[in-house]
Simulated scan of single mutants.
Amino acid sequence: MLKILGKSPSINVRKVLWTCAEIGLPYEQEQWGAGFQATDDPAFRSLNPNALVPVIVDGEVVLWESNTICRYLARRQGRSDLLPTDALARAKVEQWMDWQLGDLNNAWRYAFMALVRHSPAHTDAAAIEASVAQWNAMMGVLERQLDRTGAHVLGEGFTLADVVLGLAVHRWYATPMARPELPALAAYYQRLSERPAFRLHGRNGQP
C-alpha cells in the first residue's frame, strides 16, 4: 500500500492527502515533521536528503516534492481529468502549479512566518507589510484568472491546479491580515468548500 510520510497539518502534506481523497486511493500515513518524528533522522534522510515532508513510498518508488507527488499519483491512477494527457492542457495545469511553488509562495512566506508562526526571525514591520502587499497582489492574479474561467482555475473541470491553489487560498483567508475583497476568489473558495475532500484536508476539518 502507498505510504505517505509527513504530518497532517503541513500544507504540502495536505496536497497529497487531498489528492488521494479525490482519486479514492488508500494509503498509510506516518507522522513526520516538527512535533512528530524528526525528519533529520537518518532513516528519513535516506528517503529525502532535504529532510522535508512529504515523502511517499510506493513499492520501490520513493518520491518527494509535493506537486511532483500529486502529478505522479494522478497519472498512476489514470486520472486525466486531474492531469490531462494532452500536452498543452497538461502544461496549463502545471503552469499554475509551478506559479504556486514560485511566485505565490515567495510572496506569502515572510508574512505567514510573522503573523501565523510568530517566528522571532520574521519581525521586521516593513518586510511584513511588503510581503502582505505582494501576497495580495498574487491573489489578484488568481482573481483575474478565476473571473475569466468562472469556475475552477482552468475552467469547468477540477484539476491538480485547484488542489495546490485551493490550499493556498485557504491559507490566505486564514492569516490575520488586511486583504482586498476578491469576489471571484471568494466564490471559488465556497465552491471548493462543497468538496468533502477539501473540507477534510484543505480547510483542516473546519466547516
Rank of each mutant, 00 (worst) to 15 (best):
R195N: 13
A89I: 00
V61G: 01
G59H: 02
V169R: 00
Q77V: 04
W96P: 02
E143V: 13
A121L: 14
I56Y: 12
Y72S: 05
V164E: 02
R144N: 14
G24P: 05
I4M: 06
A91N: 03
R144W: 00
A121S: 12
L47C: 09
E94Q: 13
G205H: 05
R109Y: 13
A197H: 04
E65C: 08
L73R: 00
P26E: 11
A21C: 06
D41N: 15
A197I: 05
V16Q: 05
S10L: 13
G202M: 03
V62G: 07
V163F: 07
D41Y: 08
M139K: 00
H170G: 01
E94A: 08
P42F: 11
H201M: 05
E65L: 09
A125E: 15
P183C: 07
V141P: 02
P180E: 11
I4S: 09
R199C: 14
T159H: 08
V55A: 12
Y72R: 00
F44A: 07
L146K: 00
L17V: 08
Q77T: 12
W172F: 15
N136C: 15
R14V: 10
A174G: 04
D58L: 06
L182D: 04
I11T: 08
A168P: 04
Q206R: 06
E181M: 11
W32E: 05
G59W: 03
W96Y: 10
E22D: 10
Y189L: 03
E143A: 14
N67G: 11
G24Y: 12
N106Y: 14
W18F: 13
Q29K: 10
L142G: 11
W18K: 01
G202Q: 04
P42H: 06
Y27I: 09
G166L: 08
Y110Q: 04
R75V: 12
A38Y: 01
P26Q: 07
P49E: 09
A187D: 09
L73F: 14
H118W: 01
S46E: 15
D40M: 08
N136I: 10
P207H: 06
D147P: 00
F44L: 10
L165M: 13
P42A: 11
L47N: 04
V16K: 02
L88H: 09
M139C: 14
E194S: 09
L182K: 01
T68Q: 03
E28L: 09
A87Q: 04
A111P: 00
R195M: 11
L167C: 09
V13F: 13
G102T: 14
R144F: 02
A51W: 05
Y173A: 14
V62Y: 08
M113Y: 14
P183W: 04
S46Y: 05
